[in-house]
Design a protein around this nucleic acid. Sequence first.
DNA 1: ACAACCATGTAAGTAGTTACATGATTTA
DNA 2: TAAATCATGTAACTACTTACATGGTTGT
Lengths: 182, 182
Amino acid sequence: MSLPHALLTALLEQSSSGFDLAKRFDRSMSYYWHATHQQIYRELAKMEQHGWIESLSIPNSKSRIKTYQILPAGQAELLRWAQTPSEVAPLREVLMVKLRAESMLDEVDLSPEMRARLAEHQQRLTVYRQLEVQYFSTPQPTRQQRIQHLILQTGMQHEQHCIAWIEHILTILNESDLDRAI
Amino acid sequence: MSLPHALLTALLEQSSSGFDLAKRFDRSMSYYWHATHQQIYRELAKMEQHGWIESLSIPNSKSRIKTYQILPAGQAELLRWAQTPSEVAPLREVLMVKLRAESMLDEVDLSPEMRARLAEHQQRLTVYRQLEVQYFSTPQPTRQQRIQHLILQTGMQHEQHCIAWIEHILTILNESDLDRAI
DNA sequence: ACAACCATGTAAGTAGTTACATGATTTA
DNA sequence: TAAATCATGTAACTACTTACATGGTTGT
């Protein structure tokens, strides 16, 4: 499980409230790790119990905003986790299951869904390209900036890979349709 | 959720026991959908309750083997599901989280883990290549065989993609290490 | 003063994992 | 006849999702 460690990393970069973390996740982490705000709040509460982070609220204020900051134990835990090898996440590709179903059921046509996916991956790629221009155009990037740029580039490569395999399958499937018609 | 539909597809190809399905999942589906035997047994029981499949056991036998076969309602459900568009599965890439942590913590070195992953992806690729020779060398494949071959090829492309991006990151990280040393 | 959004949470449910139990059949 | 493996399951737990609740703050 990586969510607490993703949150520790985010808090190491910048102390934040749960709400801010949710926004930052959506903006800068959602292309390789996704979490809803409910997950984030629950996880932050657990992490505070573990003594990994502490929350500060403004005294004598009606505001409910809690700002979390990382504690030494949290940094140690992040270090420990980063050094421990983790398993390769098993692939879960619905389209492959559907393709296999399609090979058994003649009535199904997956090409509309595939074209919709194609459009979605292309749109994501466009967003990532804009992010790249916006955040990684500095002439002398720091090591941290270069690594974050690398992460974004990997996200872009992933989208391009998805586009490529869907296009490939669409091509092959069209050829097969000729066969099916005969 | 695709597990019941993956199971329906497998049962459409061949009526089987839960144990056989678990083995077939490991062999021919694990590179795009994974399930443990506990999940499979639980799901089969639910599907029987829904009237999608039925189980047959050998009468007057002490054997507990139940052979499941798909019912018309199950085939209809599979068809309905295959025609309904599904969401793109959100990406979950632990290495990206670790990379981002590494950019904040100087003590971490991810290259051993990355090299281990590289080896694992290469090994999977080797297995898939053997499967390809073993199952898809027939001169005149049927439409079904061609689609299953296509699924395997996509799995191979996925492994190659993983190998490529990990190699890319390793290269860039080594360059950065020079920077870090200076 | 009303709407829109900020901010944190509870509750219930689904999906998936891990550990263990149990009895049948096959093999050495 | 003991060990391995076949075959099906239960129980408890963790991760994640979906729907809803609640009250504060900001803008018009």
